[in-house]
């Protein structure tokens, strides 16, 4: 029941002894780097009727409550550099799966292992402080993800240009329209050079021109070596365009895992 996340810093530190070991004849295993691994992961949400039940449950964890199984013993491995589409109807467990990968929430049973810096465009505005300006939020998000101030300063202009916010960048985010927030969210997440990029329905942001720009950006990130892309979408076109593999979820279970064409076919037949 643990989440193991290796930050890039730790990875670098861990690499050294591994490299030394590799010289020895003992190390015969080929190095296939896994980005994300789920080991029979289940996520059960407790359904609280009111605050009192919540409080009681926190103080007495054994108390029984109504439950909702959002993810049901899911196992899979995603290698570095893979692009995977996650398909499924509303309520199939996609969002929970993504939350588990990003480490926002924890599995009830099983292990989630993630290697690398995850950038999630889950809800595009996730992690924004509405009272701060757009520019301050760029720094906030960059800092939280572990970037140095200088590194953020280096990409600041690029982000602002991409988001097309102009002078609004120095206004509080609470004054932004939802489109502006979404553009800023996409711009920040796409520019921080993540190892794993998660995109949840983000391709439907903004007008046609902006959507095109987003697609180009995602293609550009994908072209980089070792960047893993997870795409949640209902659009077969997007899935085909960006992904080579598809996971199909239904009722919290992983019902299909295979090449994207097969996965799409499976998904379409079911629905």
């Amino acid at each position: 029941m643990t989440i193991k996340t290796k930050s890039p810093v730790k990875k670098a530190a861990a690499k050294k002894p591994a490299a030394k070991k590799a010289k020895k004849p003992r190390a015969t295993k080929p190095v296939v780097r896994t980005a994300i691994e789920f080991k029979s992961v289940s996520k059960v949400y407790k359904l609280y009727k009111n605050d009192r039940q919540k409080l009681a449950a926190a103080l007495m964890p054994r108390k029984k409550l109504a439950q909702k199984i959002a993810n049901d013993s899911i196992s899979f491995k995603i290698k570095h550099g893979e692009s995977v589409a996650i398909l499924g109807k509303n309520g199939a467990g996609k969002s929970t799966l993504l939350k588990l990968i990003t480490g926002v929430t924890f599995p009830t049973i099983g292990d989630v292992i993630v290697h690398g810096q995850v950038s999630a465009i889950l809800e595009l505005t996730a992690g924004f402080d509405e009272a701060l300006t757009g520019r301050e939020n760029i720094y906030l998000k960059g800092m939280v993800l572990g970037l140095e101030k200088s590194a953020i300063a280096a990409i600041e202009k690029e982000i602002i240009d991409f988001a097309e916010l102009g002078e609004y960048i120095d206004q509080p985010v609470r004054t932004y329209s939802s489109g502006m927030k979404a553009r800023l969210g996409f711009a920040v997440n796409a520019h921080i050079n993540p190892d794993i990029l998660i995109i949840d329905e983000a391709l439907s942001v903004g007008d046609k021109d902006f959507r095109k720009k987003c697609r180009t950006k995602i293609a550009e990130i994908r072209a980089r070596e070792h960047v893993t892309v997870l795409l949640v979408t209902h659009s077969a076109d997007s899935a085909r365009e960006f992904c080579e593999r598809g996971l199909v979820l239904a009722g919290g279970k992983l019902v299909h895992d295979g090449p994207i064409a097969e996965a799409l076919e499976f998904y379409n037949q079911k629905s």
Partner: peptide, 9 residues
């Protein structure tokens, strides 16, 4: 909340 519930923090 915007950090706890929406990002890994």
């Amino acid at each position: 909340k915007f950090l706890i519930a929406k990002t890994k923090f």
